[in-house]
């Protein structure tokens, strides 16, 4: 499962960490791979950044030697600045787009979630080649949605070259239902992608605060709007990561 958007600051890592942990709470064993040299997956889970990805892809160390347990049933393959060097290394090797898929082959997990950097580079291509499904978190603004279209165009090209990643869902994040821009972009997203658009994640300052305490959103604010959604007239709650989790489980079923 690839979580990607070429635009930064759209909530990729929060989405990856929250969904990964939620899946472990349902009894699944999950590996969360950080493909971003900023190493924010480790930070979000209160774990030290490390060069796990570099050691896997460049030093060819076995996967169990480079993953770190972060929570029960949740391991991470951490990143740090050395991931940049791993990218440079990958550009020099043959079949580089398959490198990640090969390195993760037979990994003993129910699901592997790949948290991509906000760029379309060799690691991102490798992530798409290794993935069965793609989730695209996006803010509801014109530039971010342009990023969705760019990414989907790249996925389309990769499929023509034999890739098999399918769009699981587009996840609107930082959803502020009061603004006109949000309404317009939500409409155009729904017009373009129909049921691929998942219920949104409400804007919630607690999602931003959680990493400062080394806690995930589910630990820091399990009843927050970002997790539970916001109240509505007809349905009990709308959106939030629990709704996204339900959509994800449907996709995986």
């Amino acid at each position: 499962m690839d979580i990607a958007n070429q635009k930064g600051g759209v909530g990729k890592t929060t989405t990856a960490v929250t969904l990964a942990q939620a899946l472990t709470l349902q009894g699944r064993r999950v590996l969360l791979v950080d493909l971003d040299p900023q190493g924010h997956v480790a930070t979000a889970l209160g774990v030290e950044k490390a060069d796990g990805l570099y050691r896997l892809l460049v030093d060819h160390e076995p996967l169990p030697a480079v993953v770190q347990p972060a929570r029960p049933n949740l391991d991470i393959l951490p990143s740090n600045k050395r991931t940049e060097a791993a990218k440079r290394h990958l550009t020099t090797v043959d079949f580089r787009e398959r490198a990640l898929a090969e390195a993760l082959r037979d990994a003993p997990y129910d699901l592997i979630i790949l948290d991509c950097a906000p760029s379309f580079d060799v690691l991102h291509v490798a992530a798409l080649a290794a993935s069965d499904f793609l989730i695209i978190p996006t803010r509801l603004d014109h530039l971010a949605i342009d990023g969705v279209n760019e990414l989907l165009a790249s996925v389309g090209q990769m499929r023509q070259m034999g890739g098999h990643a399918e769009l699981a869902g587009i996840l609107p994040t930082f959803f502020d239902r009061q603004t006109r821009e949000t309404a317009e972009q939500m409409r155009s997203l729904a017009d373009a992608f129909g049921a691929y658009v998942w219920p949104p994640i409400p804007q919630d300052t607690r999602a931003r605060e959680a990493p400062a305490y080394g806690q995930t959103l589910l630990e820091y604010a399990p009843r927050s709007a970002a997790v539970m959604g916001y109240p509505s007239e007809h349905e009990a709650r709308i959106g939030g990561y629990l709704a996204a989790l339900a959509r994800l489980v449907d996709v995986l079923a």
Partner: peptide, 19 residues
């Protein structure tokens, strides 16, 4: 399609409610 994703005609019920 050009965006690499076919449009699913129906909307997610929660998204339909928001719209």
């Amino acid at each position: 399609g050009k965006a690499g994703a076919g449009r699913r005609s129906a909307l997610d019920p929660a998204v339909a409610e928001i719209l």
